[in-house]
């Protein structure tokens, strides 16, 4: 199981995956926005998305859980 966490304080701009989706290594799961920049959050390994912890418009802090990929 791989937990994907936020690298910085940011707003959640787009959630591109849903629970149950199959993703490959390097796929973009979520796009964050911080300080006028889009920051893609990438899967660091393939698998099935078992949970998405954020919704579009949320504010995340550094180290907050974004998604879990099994």
């Amino acid at each position: 199981m791989a937990e994907v966490r936020a690298e910085m304080t940011a707003n959640v701009w787009k959630v591109l995956v849903a629970q149950g989706d199959t993703v490959a290594d390097g796929d973009t799961l979520v796009i964050l926005e911080s300080m006028k920049m889009e920051i893609p959050v990438i899967a660091e390994g393939g698998g099935t998305v078992s949970a998405v912890a954020v919704a579009e418009g949320d504010v995340v802090q550094e180290d907050d859980l974004i998604a879990t990929v099994d």
Partner: peptide, 13 residues
């Protein structure tokens, strides 16, 4: 800038 010096990704705080 409030960003890391390698990848230039923002880091508020």
């Amino acid at each position: 800038y409030a960003e890391d010096p390698k990848r230039f990704l923002p880091g508020p705080g």
